[in-house]
Every structure is written in C-alpha cells, then in structure tokens.
Design a protein around this nucleic acid. Structure first.
Lengths: 89, 89
DNA sequence: TAGATAATTAGACGAATATCTAAATAAAAA
DNA sequence: TTTTTATTTAGATATTCGTCTAATTATCTA
C-alpha cells in the first residue's frame, strides 16, 4: 500500500494515470502531454510501475504503458475500508 | 485533491485515520498509539486537518480529532473515476 | 494566582523527492 | 554498419518532508 500512496503523491503521476484510463500509451506519447523533460516523465513512470499501478510492454522501440486496474481496485478497497468501523469489519 | 494525497503519503497518518474510524480521539490518545514524540504526532494531525481529512474540536484542555467521512468520499469518487474511460464520463 | 496537564509552535537536521542535463541502451531504418 | 529514434539511467541540485528537542500557549485545579 505504501508504494501506491507514494506513487499517488505527485500530481504529474496522478495525471498520467488519468491519461491511461482511455487505453495504452507509449512513453513518448505520455511525455508529450507534459511541460517536462522525457527523463522526468520516465522517472514518474518508473514509480508508477514499482507501485504496479501501470504495466509496461515493449513493442519494438516503443514501451507501451497500461493502467493496472487490479491495483486501482486494491486502493478502492482501502478507501472503502476507511469508512468502516472495526466493529463492521 | 493534492492535500489529500499529500496527507495519505505517510504511513503514520494513514494509521491515524484508521484509528479514528471507531470514533473521536484526543491528540494525547492518538499519540499514545505511536512510538513517536507528541510534537511529531501533532504535526501529522496538522497535515490531516489541512487536507480536511480530520476535524478538530476543543473541549477544555483536550483537542478531539474526528475522521471527516465527507472527504473520504471525495477520495472514493476520485478512485472510482480512475476506472472510468473518458467516454464513460 | 501558581503549578500541573494537554497540546502546539519554532527551529534544526538528515533523508527523500522532483527536476534537469548528459550519457547510455535498445531497436529500426538507411 | 552507421545513423536515427525511443527511452532509460546516472549524477547533480534545490526543495520538501519527518522527526527531534526546547519553548510556548491554553486550560484546569489547588
């Protein structure tokens, strides 16, 4: 859970996740959406990958990034759990 | 949203929120649960308050902290939204 | 009013973080 | 095989962050 919240701390990374809702994007396509260098975006993608929030697959020279909805659901459960008392659990 | 994720980045703060699921606690009661000085806990409570994740009310010498479920629901919506494509929105 | 209790604020310090430029790696194209 | 394109890795730097001790504020009680 810690890696997930670490990844979500940064606004750029949250925006990347939102971009990926509509499907896979290459690192370059993602970078194009931000006023930031490619190495910086690459670093953000690395943190998202470490948190398993995105999956990456190489296709030729391109690295395709995809949102990992399984982990989003883990997060969803964590938040829902926050609304439950211990008694309810 | 940024203040919320900033607040949730730290494991101690996430634990404080989980403690507060079962009801209001004073700063002292919260601090007792952690192997950390009171000023440190006070600082964490301040960040949670700034994110509006907790509400605070003074009763005499004591400051009572409560989980703000409204903001938890804002967070919940954010996460749910992450599973939707732009088309679905 | 003086002392005790609850909690915060102030200031310091080391560790973590976000960003950049320059260099390296991987694959495609010429 | 040389060059180009896509992307990451390395290293540097300024800023943010978590924690501590010491001092301060607020309230209660003797």
């Amino acid at each position: 859970m810690d890696d997930i919240f670490k990844a979500l701390r940064d606004p750029t990374r949250r925006q990347i996740l939102q971009l990926l809702r509509n499907g896979t994007m290459t690192a370059g396509e993602i970078a194009q959406e931000f006023a930031m260098t490619k190495p910086s975006i690459s670093h953000h993608l690395d943190l998202l990958r470490r948190a398993d929030l995105v999956a990456v697959e190489r296709q030729g020279q391109f690295l395709h990034y995809t949102l990992n909805t399984t982990v989003v659901e883990d997060l969803l459960r964590w938040v829902i759990d926050l609304k439950k008392t211990d008694h309810e659990k």
